[in-house]
Nucleic acid binder design. Structure first.
Lengths: 221, 221
DNA sequence: CGTTCGATTGATGTCAGTCAACCCGAGTGG
DNA sequence: CCACTCGGGTTGACTGACATCAATCGAACG
């Protein structure tokens, strides 16, 4: 359990409910109610938040940090499904379907999360249907992303993923946009379903074409 | 507009709201209210229900028939995203996101649908948050399907899609399960993102291994 | 300064796509 | 009733993109 804000309602707001998009529709009083339903927790880099095959019963919202959600294919390879960061949620399947988790989730850095249990969640949605609508919106966005990614070949996927990272993690810089990649080449490869060598090659050719410039593990657009 | 039941509330129930899973949480009175928000429409085989790039503003529920939802990749190939039939809904993106449709939808046979406009839908969710939960459940199911399909190679995809069709459209039969395929080989190919030749080959080997038996365009498991 | 682990680069293999020929059943028209 | 066409389906040969395997590089860290 997180030592921060355990008994400080105002801190709790700051930490969680207030900055989460899906709760943006709530007013102060509703936020207070939601805050009471939340359990906070901290994970260190590399710790597993959800393990495939277990049966967690909470929705998880990221307060600070980054999380990768992945599953292993029968031949043992890791397929990363999503990279989530501050304000994102995951684990909605845990509370909407009865089955065991079909995926694992691991903290990529020190990560603080808020957890809402199944029954609290249902109650919350009934009191604030607009949260449900927000959730639906976000799921639609994810579907869109998955659908459009699935139509690309290796080169298109690398381009898309770099664009995605530059939007999410890019910072302005005199010579373009500086992006701090959340994943290694291997991670990117597992994310888009190709090998690390392919990622290397495609990124090298992008550099040859002067589209990007690599600096260690960051890059400039 | 469908000539049936235009002014018959009871017929309307039968036609639409009552047999749709997402409305299964409603009681009689709530069903009545929902029914009033619905517009019915009929499409013939081959007619387009939604065109990529247009800006429809309704959720669409299939009352009878089959619909394929697809998009075209830049090189002009058709990618089928889903095959929907009685009781399924689609177009949720239309009412949850402001952007234009990123996909098209075409009736695969004579199809009767119910349409709920954006504002009616929002109102409906606010009155019956449980419908929102049902929708979330269904979207999660679809995500699961997409996620697990994306990890398969061509052979695995063919197996999965045949299994899916046999679950959805299969009928018991003395020698196994008789499946009436909703798509041609080419359609299946576009559905799982391979070529029609590959589908042919994989299905032939399945037949060699006596896993399936083909009869024209149907098959026995 | 050496070890280590990820990244890169090159050589080779393989799965599925492409191209092309042929088959077959459904229509169509003589 | 048969001949012809036409559109999908099947099958085979070839190709190409990406995976695999392997060697080398290079930055980070003790």
């Amino acid at each position: 359990m997180d030592r921060l804000g355990k008994d400080c309602v105002h801190c709790a707001h700051q930490l969680c409910a207030k900055k989460v998009p899906i709760f943006s529709v709530l007013d102060e009083e509703e936020l207070n109610r939601v805050t009471e339903l939340i359990v906070r927790k901290k994970y260190n880099k590399g710790e597993l938040i959800i393990i495939e095959g277990s049966n967690p019963e909470s929705l998880i919202i990221i307060n600070r940090g980054k999380v990768k959600v992945f599953k292993n294919s029968h031949d043992g390879k890791e397929h990363i499904l999503y990279i989530f960061s501050t304000g994102d949620f995951f684990g909605e399947k845990n509370i909407l379907r009865k089955s065991d988790a079909t995926y694992s989730a691991e903290a990529l850095e020190e990560t603080h999360v808020c957890m809402i249990r199944k029954d609290s969640f249902q109650q919350m949605i009934r009191q604030n249907p607009d949260i449900g609508i927000k959730l639906l919106e976000e799921l639609c966005r994810r579907m869109d992303a998955v659908e459009s990614m699935s139509m690309e070949n290796a080169e298109g996927k690398v381009n898309k993923v770099l664009l995605e990272f530059s939007k999410k993690y890019g910072k302005d810089h005199p010579k373009g946009i500086l992006v701090d990649l959340p994943l290694s080449r291997e991670g990117i490869a597992n994310y888009i379903g190709v090998t690390r060598e392919t990622v290397s090659r495609k990124m090298s050719s992008l550099q040859d074409e002067s589209v990007i410039k690599m600096i260690g593990n960051k890059k400039i657009l």
